[in-house]
Design a protein around this nucleic acid. Structure first.
Lengths: 197, 197
DNA sequence: CTAAGCCTACCGACTAGTAGGTTTGCGCTC
DNA sequence: GAGCGCAAACCTACTAGTCGGTAGGCTTAG
């Protein structure tokens, strides 16, 4: 594992736990066991480091979007993959919060370039979610009660809110509980018109 | 308005926008137009100032709880009062984020006493919500699909998540949109058994 | 020979917090 | 009512430590 990758990993963890203004080059240097100046060699400014972390995440979402466009995929499994990923991360405390969610809450005091990157992450994620929900609705797996874009943003909100809740209570299972509720709501609940399985 | 109140107001706003580690005594001093040392006179340490802000919020919730216990109240109106309050705050940018939500995301790097105060805020709020939802369900105003405590935490999550979303998009109406969806879900949606109005 | 990678040593700006002096206003006694 | 005492409020001036960032030198691999 290269130093650059180690720096990104460390920065990601620190941002997730303490936020952008809550971590310093000194913290990263201590974790990775290099000197502060060496970090500047890879990432000239703090904003560059943080932005690289966000872009890394965006890359992963981008991959998934491309996969969906090219081949067959299971909407339900996709969504479960997303929530399951965070359930695991939060449960084992390896990543107790989405890095973009953390940065979003500090958005107003972030360097503009970094802020833009965070906004793009949210746009990417909600678009991905919208696609998954739309496909799921077409196949009769999900029941949407309003526009797919609105449902996507609601679901996203619940997931991010559940992260805050789990952290506030120090109980990872709170996340699971809330997210499972949101998931159940999307699955067939024989409402209104007659279109049960 | 006393200096102490001005300091609390300023600190509240700064925490909401920048977080605990993102604001300094110098920022507060500039806003209130006093010297840094004067802030220390009222609040010896930064944690004391932040804690006082959180406790102020807790006091307001506490009042509402006591009001509910003593006299008749309208659960729907209570809930609409809560969400409406934040809609207004976010729309006019006077308070773009709940102070406890902001601090919760930084919880791991907060002084213990302050962290405890934040945890208590969440406990208070979810208990209040649970009471409102339970009363509303008894009167047939709300339809709960799982335990009141779970519904309360889900609703809370959605509200906090919607704050993040609105901030990330820079669009206050996103908050309204998501929260209205959550509200609609609680109101009578003729599901399962036959108990429509 | 070059360039990437990492280092030591430093910079000015800012951090929370402290020491100690000055101002202000209120209650008490002559 | 004048003078006194006292405490709250606010100030200037300072501390030690940390912040992000820079300059420039050393080492190593191609």
């Amino acid at each position: 594992m290269s130093t650059r990758e180690k720096l990104l990993d460390s920065a990601r963890y620190l941002i997730q736990t303490r936020g952008y203004s809550g971590f310093s080059y000194a913290d990263v240097a201590a974790q990775v066991e290099v000197r502060k100046a060496s970090i500047h060699h890879h990432f000239p400014a703090k904003a560059d480091l943080a932005k690289a972390v966000v872009e890394q995440s965006r890359g992963i979402i981008g991959e998934q979007i491309r996969m969906m466009e090219s081949e067959a995929f299971d909407p339900l499994r996709q969504l479960q993959g997303y929530t399951g990923y965070w359930e695991k991360c939060i449960a084992d405390a390896s990543a107790p919060f989405c890095v973009a969610g953390m940065l979003a809450s500090e958005l107003d005091c972030l360097p503009e370039e970094l802020a833009e990157s965070v906004r793009m992450h949210f746009r990417d994620l909600s678009r991905w979610l919208e696609t998954v929900l739309t496909a799921g609705a077409q196949r009769g797996v999900f029941t949407l009660k309003s526009a797919a874009s609105v449902e996507a943003e609601s679901f996203m909100s619940t997931v991010y809110g559940a992260m805050i809740l789990a952290r506030a209570y120090g109980q990872p299972d709170k996340f699971t509980q809330v997210v499972e509720g949101a998931m159940r709501r999307l699955l067939h609940t024989d409402a209104g018109a007659a279109s049960p399985r």
